[in-house]
């Protein structure tokens, strides 16, 4: 009796196996690490570096413009009569390590940077809540020294910036980034200004469609480090991506497009209309063919 029951149960079992129409469920799903991609459209948010990197073997040519202050009025065509430009290139050595350089017309500055991704946001087999990169840049101001009589050292032209970029793609539509920043200036104008400037940058993007997004960034400089008259940098922008190009259009109160400039030398006041219209154009070229 007992055995009959077992056989009966086995038969039922066999029928169930047979009746299974979802074949794939017979195979175990292997769990994989799912790395988050495209938290931002490109490796800049507006002025700030984003947690995105240029891929290995890819050259990203960046041409950025900032027109004059909108407060210049009609006589300056709302700033369009003047323009400051940075021409630069970013190159991905590996998918996690990139370098870049550029030259800005503003203060004739040459800059270079290194950026390394230390953590990648992922889900699945390995879970990591955010992406983090470390960033270091230096800039050399090549304009003449303001006071030629004083002993001017080459090192006085140098500026350094160190940043930790931490960002998370919360959803398809929303990404947010926080970046503690340190700018070191070898030479400052007055003794009341500090050589080391600490700041905290916050930035976010809202994806509007598959190819457009709305971005904003704000850089809070901790008090009592800058001379009076310097402001925190605030920018809002709009990204349009079209295949190999990314066009970033924005409004910002910062004139400079490099860290030491927009973190520590922003003079524009949004309330007074001291806003630059500007754009960054990014075009990528794949230099290396992957296997």
């Amino acid at each position: 009796m007992k055995y009959t029951l077992i056989i009966f149960l086995l038969c039922i079992g066999s029928i169930q196996v047979h009746a299974q129409d979802d074949l794939l469920s017979l195979l175990e799903d292997e769990e994989i690490v799912n790395y988050t991609i495209a938290s931002f459209k490109t490796n800049r948010i507006i002025n700030l570096h984003s947690i995105e990197h240029t891929g290995a073997g890819v050259l990203d040519v960046k041409i950025s413009h900032r027109f004059g202050f909108i407060s210049g009025g009609i006589s300056e065509l709302f700033g369009l009569d003047q323009a400051s430009i940075r021409i630069g290139g970013d190159f991905g050595i590996t998918d996690r390590f990139m370098v870049g350089f550029g030259r800005s017309s503003f203060e004739k500055t040459i800059d270079g940077f290194l950026k390394y991704k230390i953590l990648r946001q992922s889900s699945g087999k390995r879970k990591m809540p955010f992406t983090a990169s470390i960033f270091a840049s230096s800039a050399i101001k090549t304009t003449r020294f303001q006071d030629p009589d004083r002993e001017n050292l080459f090192s006085s032209r140098m500026y350094y910036t160190y940043q930790l970029l931490m960002g998370r793609k919360f959803s398809e539509g929303f990404s947010f980034q926080l970046s503690p920043t340190l700018v070191h200036r070898n030479l400052v104008k007055t003794s009341s200004e500090s050589n080391d400037v600490f700041a905290l940058a916050a930035a976010g993007r809202i994806k509007l469609s598959r190819r457009t997004s709305l971005n904003a960034e704000y850089i809070y400089v901790l008090p009592d480090q800058l001379a009076p008259g310097f402001k925190n940098s605030l920018s809002v922008g709009f990204d349009i991506e079209t295949g190999g190009h990314v066009f970033q259009l924005h409004f910002t109160n910062s004139t400079s497009m490099i860290e030491k400039g927009f973190v520590t030398e922003t003079t524009g006041d949004w309330a007074d209309g001291d806003i630059h219209f500007g754009f960054n154009v990014s075009r990528v070229f794949s230099l290396k063919k992957s296997e």
Binding site: A38, V58, R210, G244
Partner: peptide
Amino acid sequence: FKKALMEEHFNEN
């Protein structure tokens, strides 16, 4: 993909 950005756009867009 051969190009990293293509792979991103394929997934994203």
